[in-house]
């Protein structure tokens, strides 16, 4: 026991000094578990997130937009891969993590339980959803776990193009004809509050935050990240003539913060509990791909076993 306490002390000292924890270092079981949960949830979000946007690859209205969207959705697959890779350094098995996703035991970001209903949604997702993700990920790039932090640095670098292409897309629509303008405003109206909820519940209701912050898995609270995102985004919306769907929105000169109306967290909890518009569809789609891919994976594994030159032994 004394040994355990000593290790914990050393571990916490290391984190306090701003050093990174690496896979083989001693770590409290709770730290490992929280990290696996968080990183896997993040990875699941990337691969489930491929679906709502992937829907529009075949319908993108120009060759340029088509290539950009395809490259972006591909990146998301790549980001899922980096993140599973980081979770695996903690001893988790990707197979178990994906099973947990398919069986509903693990979550993914709620935002992907909403449908993409028009081409403008693609721009709005790039601008808002990826914009919010970048705010969160920039913080995570400084987290205490080495592999997670390194994956985040890589992801942040790549995501900058996601947000820019989104904003470019949105601003072209916002300056387009009446139909385009209406399309993009409608998309903003549907995604605005959902994006704000991506940062999670208010601090006073966020049960995990204290532990996560002590060990620098998280470095800022939900509300402070949300506020940063709001302050960044609102001027961008105004610059291209879009209206934020919030009647209570006002700028506070003293704090220099944009103050928003009340977020309807009942909706968030409802969707988290499985009752969003797309929860069942998304998981059913992932399941279908996995089931249909079974024979392919088995064939590849068998080929490797038959072909020792390829070094396919377990």
């Amino acid at each position: 026991m004394i040994n355990e306490e000593l290790e914990l002390q050393k571990f916490e000292q290391k984190i306090a000094n701003g050093e990174k924890i690496e896979p083989k270092d001693w770590m409290p079981e709770k730290y490992r578990k929280q990290l696996i949960r968080m990183i896997a949830q993040h990875a699941h979000s990337e691969i489930v997130g491929m679906l709502p946007e992937g829907n529009w690859i075949t319908r993108a209205p120009s060759l340029r937009r088509k290539m950009v969207l395809l490259a972006k959705v591909q990146d998301e697959g790549g980001h899922g891969l980096y993140l599973y890779s980081a979770a695996e350094t903690l001893g988790a098995d990707r197979k178990d993590l994906i099973e947990a996703l398919l069986n509903g035991k693990m979550k993914y970001s709620n935002i992907f339980n909403y449908p993409t209903l028009s081409w403008a949604d693609i721009g709005i997702i790039g601008w808002l959803v990826d914009g919010a993700a970048i705010v969160n990920q920039t913080m995570l790039a400084k987290c205490s776990y080495g592999p997670y932090s390194r994956a985040m640095i890589r992801i942040c670098k790549e995501e900058n193009f996601h947000k820019r292409q989104g904003y470019e897309n949105v601003s072209v629509l916002a300056q387009g004809n009446a139909k385009q303008k209406q399309m993009v405003q409608d998309a903003l109206n549907r995604w605005w509050w959902q994006t704000l909820m991506m940062f999670g519940p208010h601090d006073e209701n966020s049960t995990n935050t204290v532990d996560l912050m002590r060990w620098k898995i998280k470095l800022e609270t939900n509300d402070s990240l949300r506020q940063r995102f709001i302050n960044l985004t609102i001027p961008q919306a105004y610059a291209i003539g879009l209206t934020i769907p919030d009647n209570d929105l006002k700028y506070n000169e003293k704090t220099q913060n944009w103050e928003i109306g009340k977020i309807n967290f009942d909706e968030l909890y409802n969707v988290i509990n499985g009752n969003g518009p797309c929860n069942r569809i998304r998981i059913a789609e992932r399941k279908k791909s996995y089931e249909e891919g079974n024979w392919v994976r088995i064939a590849a594994e068998n080929y490797a076993l038959k072909n020792k030159n390829n070094y396919g032994t377990k």
């Binding site: 491929m50 992937g54 395809l70 599973y84 891919g293």
Partner: peptide
């Protein structure tokens, strides 16, 4: 590109998107 998000394994999702 219709494979995007539906490939047999994540690595193949990325590969097919690349070829598309």
């Amino acid at each position: 590109s219709e494979w995007c998000g539906h490939a047999p394994i994540l690595e193949e999702d990325i590969a097919l998107a690349n070829i598309a």
